[in-house]
């Protein structure tokens, strides 16, 4: 057929891929303070002197007061579940994350359920989203008390905060 494309009723589909290339985002160094805290098993939040809110993980500015949240507060490792989701049992071939199958790579066991939760840590005014571990899915409820599950050897990375577990 050469350059003559297969006929469709009125148009043709033009195939193409689009890898638009690399971006160079500018990140704030706030996260560095947060992970340094994690290394010492401490949860650092940003504190707004205007409205007194404490946000975990720390955010740079307070929209309510329109000011930089330049002060920090350490909040408790314990908190309350404000919201949760229970996924169906995970199976092979259902989900791809960063191009890999988490069940196939063993990150998640076949049939395991994942429970993303919002936790309001004592002393904070924000929901921190994480996962609930070491729990019977049937026992999860809003208002459940939980504590942070730390990595055995914290490295100063976000993954030091593995999730939360029931108190």
């Amino acid at each position: 057929m050469g350059y003559v494309k297969e006929e469709r009723p009125t148009t043709i589909s033009v195939e193409g891929t689009w890898n638009i290339g690399s971006y160079h985002y500018k990140g704030s160094k706030l996260m560095e303070e947060y992970v340094k805290g994690l290394k010492q098993k401490k949860l650092i939040g940003s504190f707004c002197p205007g409205c007194g809110k404490v946000i975990v993980p720390p955010r740079n500015l307070c929209g309510r007061c329109h000011r930089i949240m330049d002060r920090r507060k350490i909040v408790s490792n314990r908190g309350t579940i404000t919201c949760f989701i229970v996924t169906p049992p995970m199976e092979k071939g259902k989900l791809k994350v960063l191009g890999m199958d988490p069940v196939e790579t063993g990150l998640i066991k076949e049939g395991e359920v994942v429970i993303p939760v919002f936790v309001k840590f004592d002393g904070s005014d924000s929901n921190t989203d994480t996962i609930l571990l070491n729990v019977d899915p049937k026992a999860v409820h809003i208002g459940m008390r939980v504590k942070v599950l730390w990595a055995k050897e914290p490295q100063g990375a976000l993954s030091d905060f593995e999730g939360v577990e029931p108190v």
Binding site: K26, S28, N60
Partner: peptide, 15 residues
Amino acid sequence: NMQKTREDMVFEVCK
């Protein structure tokens, strides 16, 4: 290549 995050840059001019 300003040494400021997008958020800080925008916040500062608005303020």
